[in-house]
Amino acid sequence: MGAKKFVLFGSCGVLDDDSVKDKLIIPISAIRDEGTSYHYIAPSPEIEADPHSVKILESVLSDCGYPFIKGKTWTSDAIYRETLPLIQERKQEGCIAVEMECASMLAVAKYRHIPFIQFLYGADDLSSEVWDIRDLASYGLTNAEKYMVLAFECGLAL
């Protein structure tokens, strides 16, 4: 449809609450446990983020004074398949969050040869045996305006 670059932000489930707490998440790669990405690039278990885009995002977040953590995410489009054994497996693979779009967007961006940046804020906590269903009003939605400004800054920096 003519887009020249993508910037995406949104909430995610946290798999490592201690290291993610009060920080924005910069995905550096994503486990491909969804269906969309396979329509755009060859099958593989994981997809890497573009290092240049990651550096731009790091710079914007630092310049704007936001703490962040970089890490691997798990993209799943089957929320009822986020079982305790699978969560433990993903944590052992190094995932710090679960979300529903990163792998797909990374694949589309690679296929279309356009830059893509994504940052996430932690919402639900899946890091323990009990699912902590957090209210988005307390864990990010109230900051939506702030995140939109960050997204515009990222778009300008791309």
Score class of each variant (00 low, 15 high):
Cys64Ser: 13
Gly65Ala: 07
Gly65Glu: 13
Gly65Ile: 07
Gly65Met: 10
Gly65Cys: 04
Tyr66Phe: 11
Tyr66Ala: 05
Tyr66Gly: 02
Tyr66His: 09
Pro67Lys: 15
Pro67Leu: 04
Pro67Arg: 12
Phe68Pro: 00
Phe68Leu: 00
Phe68Tyr: 08
Phe68Ser: 01
Ile69Arg: 07
Ile69Met: 07
Lys70Ala: 10
Lys70Met: 10
Lys70His: 09
Gly71Leu: 05
Lys72Ala: 04
Lys72Gln: 09
Thr73Ser: 11
Trp74Ala: 04
Thr75Trp: 06
Thr75Lys: 13
Ser76Leu: 00
Ser76Ala: 05
Ser76His: 00
Ser76Asp: 02
Asp77Ile: 00
Asp77Asn: 05
Asp77Cys: 02
Ala78Pro: 01
Ala78Leu: 14
Ile79Trp: 06
Tyr80Trp: 12
Arg81Ile: 12
Arg81Phe: 06
Glu82His: 09
Thr83Gln: 15
Thr83Arg: 03
Thr83Phe: 15
Leu84Tyr: 12
Leu84Val: 07
Pro85Gly: 05
Pro85Met: 01
Pro85Trp: 06
Pro85Leu: 08
Leu86Val: 06
Ile87Phe: 07
Ile87Arg: 05
Ile87Gly: 01
Ile87Val: 14
Gln88Leu: 06
Arg90Tyr: 03
Lys91Cys: 08
Lys91Thr: 10
Gln92Ser: 08
Gln92Cys: 06
Gln92Phe: 04
Gln92Val: 06
Gln92His: 11
Glu93Gln: 15
Glu93Pro: 02
Glu93Asn: 11
Glu93Ile: 00
Glu93Tyr: 14
Cys95Lys: 12
Ile96Lys: 08
Ile96Asn: 04
Ile96Val: 03
Ala97Leu: 12
Ala97Cys: 12
Ala97Ile: 11
Ala97Phe: 04
Val98Leu: 05
Val98Ser: 04
Glu99Cys: 09
Met100Gln: 06
Cys102Ser: 09
Cys102Gly: 13
Ala103Val: 04
Ala103Met: 12
Ala103Ile: 11
Ser104Val: 00
Ser104Gln: 02
Leu106Asn: 01
Leu106Gln: 05
Leu106Asp: 03
Ala107His: 01
Val108Phe: 14
Val108Ile: 15
Tyr111Thr: 00
Tyr111Asn: 11
Arg112Gln: 09
Arg112Val: 11
Arg112Tyr: 12
His113Cys: 13
His113Ser: 11
His113Arg: 12
His113Phe: 14
